[in-house]
Design a protein around this nucleic acid. Structure first.
Lengths: 192, 192
DNA sequence: CCTACCGATCGGTAGG
DNA sequence: CCTACCGATCGGTAGG
């Protein structure tokens, strides 16, 4: 990947995030790079190919985030680290994360199907983290694991709308996690 | 509002949700209604005006949802009812809710600013529900209320991506709420 | 509600 | 990387 192409993919990430895939023209991208529109086609074969590249960058970053969670840590600590890592990708690569979360649906086949498979794999990794925690007794025995996974993924997937790059992301993740752990209620929950 | 115009706004909600605002052409809308493109302009003055209508419908529905929460109920019950009502709007008016949540950013001024004001007002109503619960002693005294509001709004705002109209929405809302209340941890949380 | 049309812009290409 | 261009489509309008 040449520096020029890298710059083009970065510009695509930014503009697709800001204006949407269909709201961004090749002329917009050319202007962002300071070249004429026709010149872009020596760097990419199509606008769609740029969307493929940006969504792949996002998927790879989120995948690496979960890879960074240490296997040997305790189950709840692994969950906390996973949430931190996810939110750090959102804050650190906000444009790619935004396109990954919101613009992926404009992918064309076969990449559209491949994207869905990849995203499902990512969600399964989260489910596995919860199941592992459950089997090792770290979670309430009556926990609705599916709802818990959906809740944490909702927080993770919505974060691109409010998380700003300068924020103390680790601390924010921990604040979320604290509520996820113990809830909001003002007295000890009834034991089953 | 004539029946024909209502049908046009409904078609716009569906297509803007499915293909995005910029991914939907006036020709697409005409085809959905079975008329020629030029005929649409007796029903709306522009494509942008349709986006304004759909986002207003969404805002009104979410507003009515919070209105439906009984004032006299207990604080936690009010929160539970609010989450239910919000998710029922998402499931019951999925297209308008999707456009409200994802396509609003293509509004032009002055409606763009008005939308942001309205949405902030909605979020403030949620914050007020939490504050009320806190003041009445229904929440943990050490609760991070801001994080709690953000967590529940994340779940609410992400719901359009997975909630399907046929689902048992009330039950789903209660499953979320149960986790929000008591958390996922497998033992009683330490009291402060 | 239709036909016929407007100028502008779209993604992309050819040839240099 | 540029100029010049392609056919297709865009949102919107005029006149009926």
């Amino acid at each position: 990947m040449t520096p020029r192409r890298t710059a083009l993919v970065a510009a695509a990430a930014r503009l697709f995030a800001e204006r949407g895939y269909h709201g961004t023209s090749m002329a917009d991208l050319a202007e962002a790079l300071g070249v004429q529109k026709g010149s872009l086609y020596s760097l990419t074969e199509s606008k769609q190919a740029l969307l493929v590249d940006v969504t792949r960058d996002g998927a790879a970053a989120f995948g690496r985030a979960l890879d960074s969670v240490p296997d040997e840590a305790e189950p709840l600590e692994r969950l906390r680290r996973a949430l931190r890592a996810h939110l750090e990708v959102v804050a650190g690569q906000l444009h790619a994360a935004t396109v990954f979360t919101r613009e992926w649906r404009f992918l064309e086949e076969p990449e559209l199907t491949a994207f869905r498979v990849e995203r499902r794999r990512y969600e399964e990794r989260w489910r596995a983290l919860f199941r592992e925690a459950s089997e090792r007794g770290a979670l309430r025995s009556d926990l609705d694991v599916e709802a818990a996974v959906l809740l944490v993924l909702s927080a993770a997937n919505w974060a691109y709308t409010w998380l700003r790059p300068g924020a103390d992301t680790a601390s924010l993740a921990d604040r979320f996690f604290a509520i996820l752990l113990d809830g909001v209620r003002g007295y000890a929950p009834p034991r089953s």
